[in-house]
Design a protein around this nucleic acid. Structure first.
Lengths: 315, 315
DNA sequence: CCTTGACTTGAAATGCATTTCATAAATTAG
DNA sequence: CTAATTTATGAAATGCATTTCAAGTCAAGG
């Protein structure tokens, strides 16, 4: 491979001058600039990006930790992040964690090793205490709210959105509701339980199923809910695909939505539009865009993204 | 920042020895190894990955060119790629192109500049002639078939799948079918037109609408199709989300699927499962996995991934 | 005519870790 | 008890481009 020294030699100038040409520095005699460019062209030379990143100490690359790479919510976040990164000429490296603490640390180590200028954590397995020291090595932005001042946040007030959704159900005359969540130990699940308690009081046994991700999970969850002795009249699903599965199960039992069963979904996904499901749209694409914007600006601001409830025909 | 020289000095050894410890080289006296590790611990040292990549000449990072980052088909491909990359400890950088030739070249230049060990092209804007020279700088794998021996391929025989889908419709008694595609100038569209011609002969005017991506596009397409003087009895949609939109439009017109209108979708997406749409599943996740596997192995093989038709209730 | 500021250029230092080469000591084999 | 390995270590070269520093030229201003 030809490098900057070869170019300098062949063009009869110093490497400094070649570097100046490469970086469009003003003060280079035009004849020298010409001949350098000519040699670059002839030798088909491209500067080595690793050398540049090494000396500049930055890579214009952002790492994005996502637990699952086949999950529509994280796809929405990633979509927003990519859009913003493209605008500002940053690269995005996707870091799937499967909620493994070790994998997560491995990725944070890569921030420390100068591979990324910053990291966006869409969801995490480790404690903040473990993560925060790494904010010394690059900007870290979270898609979940945290008090810690070292971490920028682009977040949703989920507690409030859950409160609103449950209130909507209560207003329609339901005295309880079943619901699904993703990970049992997540912050989001905690907020869900709190919001439920706030609106409906005690949760009837069997009214909460966790680890739901996809349409099939929703189908199974609905089956379980509807086999309970006190079957729920309303269900909140943590995603429209999950809600879609519930809808299908209800249909298979000759139940009508919303007459026999009310379903409310989340994230405004295509299947929800298709089935006319009412949904709580947390606008994850916007959350992603904002997160990316914060990490690029090395900002530690806390930015709340508004959610909205899209009422369709399932409530 | 502390570097390998600092560690060497503080541990009273040479940088070579520190490097040996770092890379678990066998022949290091255990007492020296201990003291090096101790200093590394104390100084909270992490080697600079850019320096390592520079000298090793490889990054264990693969770039993935995708035209759209909010498209379910490309999400499926990416999903497969990420799964395989995680297994083999490679990183994935997502490179959105929007089918811009310039952006694409920019990304290929990054391969040349040693930022990536290889590139996966899920779909392209440039000619192969323009792309191929870059295969000298790293392995390039395409998710579309090409004769060029420089390029590895993990591909689907779309012509065959379209042939099969149209034959299915013909067998059910349809004498023509309308269909949607993504980009008009894509290879896939060409194959579609050829397959149509093979099965049904000449395409009735207005029976092909391009640039369809999402549910809303499908809704609009169905509207246009069903307003034609000779309205089609069957439609092939380039994606289940598009098909979902068609389904919705048909419903809005009090039409029954499949009695009044037959719809066949593509890629086995959640909305299709939800609506019970028959679909041509090209198994894009597998295509992605295979593509990633090829690029990691620097293989130029041509691997055909089998498709399958999932018959549900819309045909 | 001298000073000042705008140009122009190259040598050398810098960023950081790996790897080759040379050397030497300690074992093992014959 | 040699010869051949194995073990152990450091100096120096290597990968590559940027940036600072020093120094020189040239033209304009006073």
């Amino acid at each position: 491979m030809t490098n900057i020294n070869d170019i300098a030699r062949l063009a009869g100038v110093s490497v400094s001058t070649v570097s100046r040409v490469l970086n469009n520095y003003k003060y280079v005699a035009s004849n020298k600039r010409e001949s350098v460019l000519k040699v670059i062209e002839e030798m088909n030379y491209t500067p080595n990006k690793n050398a540049i990143d090494l000396i500049r100490g930055e890579t214009r690359t952002i790492g994005v930790i996502i637990p699952y790479n086949n999950n529509p919510s994280f796809d929405q976040l990633l979509n927003g992040i990519l859009t913003k990164a493209l605008e500002d000429d940053f690269l995005i490296t996707v870091l799937p964690s499967k909620y493994s603490k070790e994998k997560e640390m491995e990725y944070l180590e890569k921030l420390k090793s100068k591979l990324f200028d910053g990291i966006i954590i869409t969801s995490r397995a480790n404690d903040w205490e473990t993560i925060i020291p790494y904010s010394n090595y690059g900007s870290i932005v979270s898609c979940e709210y945290t008090e810690h001042t070292e971490i920028g946040c682009s977040y949703i007030d989920r507690y409030s959105s859950f409160l609103n959704a449950f209130q909507l159900l209560k207003n329609k005359g339901h005295r309880a509701a079943a619901f699904t969540t993703a990970r049992l130990e997540s912050n989001s699940t905690k907020q869900m339980l709190d919001a439920y308690n706030q609106i409906f009081g005690e949760l009837p046994p069997g009214y909460h199923i966790s680890d739901c991700q996809c349409l099939e999970d929703g189908y199974e969850a609905a089956k379980q809910f509807l086999q309970l002795p006190e079957r729920p009249t309303a269900i909140y699903a943590n995603g429209d695909e999950v809600a879609g599965g519930m809808y299908l199960y209800a249909k298979s039992q000759q139940m009508k939505v919303p007459a026999d069963l009310v379903i409310i979904g989340q994230e405004n996904q295509p299947v929800g539009i298709g089935l006319g499901l009412t949904t709580v749209d947390h606008q994850l694409t916007k959350v992603g865009e904002q997160a990316c914007s914060l990490v690029i600006k090395k900002s530690r601001k806390k930015v709340k993204i508004p959610y909205r409830i899209l009422e369709r025909d399932s409530v």
